[in-house]
Amino acid sequence: MTSIMEVLGDELANLLSIKPIQAKGLLRLSIRDVMPDKLAEDLTLQNLTDVLKKGLKGRLDRIGASNSEMIVNKMVNFATKKQSLITNLKT
């Protein structure tokens, strides 16, 4: 069954032109950086926003992605727009 991480991973893969599996891994590492005690599936929209703004931003900067700010903003907008999936994909 599709999870919110897969949906976000697909979008991040498109933005970074990397494989979806790598994007998903990057998101999981970002979650571990910011909310090590939480499972990806238990994140609220607010948690996800924090993970993207802090965790993903840090990871992107670490690998030297030049447009990390723009990618993070696009991801936050994407997550906000599709927020109902957090509920839908969990039930």
């Binding site: 599709t2 970074l16 032109s17 990397i18 599996i21 891994g25 990057l26 690998i63 030297g64």
Partner: peptide
Amino acid sequence: TSKKSAEEELSEEELMKGIKEEIDK
């Protein structure tokens, strides 16, 4: 049909290195 593929068992270093290589291409 799900496009979902199994997550590769990569270490953090391997994953970050792989992404960096893809981005730098």
